[in-house]
Design a protein around this nucleic acid. Structure first.
Lengths: 130, 130
DNA sequence: GATAGTACTTACCTAAAGGAAAGCGCTTAC
DNA sequence: GTAAGCGCTTTCCTTTAGGTAAGTACTATC
């Protein structure tokens, strides 16, 4: 565990880091695609019904939404609750597990912000250095 | 800054978090695709020439490699150095800026590992709960 | 001067993600 | 009984990421 950090920080590219890369690829796969993050954030905002989410995420088609919801259910980021009202009410809400995402999303967010600043400022310095 | 964390941890889904999501989408875009991470890791392992990288990342086509290298150069993760040998030698190496990635990649990696364990263990508990 | 190597570029093709539109089974409301 | 709403599913189409194969400009070597 600790040794992996050191290895990666100092040498990297060795066996441990190959495993680490696999993990990162997994993470990108789980979070990747056009709608997963917006969908997760929409549910963090509060439990919602299918049509509410569809309205929230302007532009998503019902097919995609149904797929993404199933996927996120499998990954335990959302829970699908069926209420025996008549007609049945189906409500999607975030799970406790989805909270573990927040830290990592926050890290990603701050990094991306710094990165954008970095790129923007070096574009000013040398606008076209061909 | 600090307030953003609190908002996101407690309420989320508000204006600040919309910006935060945009950042995360940016980050996923910068790191996304099949080859960017393997390519970055290959260069963290050491500076390399075009053909060396092509050999290292088995299966990448020269077209894709050239594209990815340009992209990563624009994002300042790799530097393209041209040596006036004859014939010219072109060497790609990681930048200092690419080091900022390591922390965030490590966070992603550990999260993904925990997530995989979580999903695997709950699949054992209830193999098929349809 | 033919061959081979380096660092690509160009043109074409395929597969997968995603979008648009319609339908389906259920229900309540009119 | 017909219309309308909900939670989807199905079908078909477009877009795009990525793959294959070939070619180009340069040089060095035989």
């Amino acid at each position: 565990m600790e040794s992996m950090i050191k290895d990666c920080e100092l040498v990297l590219g060795k066996e441990e880091c190959a495993g680490s890369m696999k993990n990162v690829l997994d993470a990108l796969y789980v979070l990747g695609g056009k709608w997963k993050l917006p969908l997760i954030l929409s549910l963090i905002d509060g439990p919602k019904r299918f049509n509410e989410i569809q309205h929230d995420l302007k532009g998503i088609s019902p097919k995609i939404l149904a797929n993404e919801l199933k996927n996120l259910e499998l990954n335990e980021f959302v829970e699908r609750k069926v209420y025996a009202t008549t007609p049945v009410t189906i409500i999607y809400e975030e799970t406790e597990h989805s909270a573990t995402l927040r830290k990592v999303l926050y890290e990603l967010s701050t990094w991306a912000e710094q990165h954008r600043e970095k790129i923007r400022s070096s574009m000013k310095e040398k606008p076209k250095q061909t």
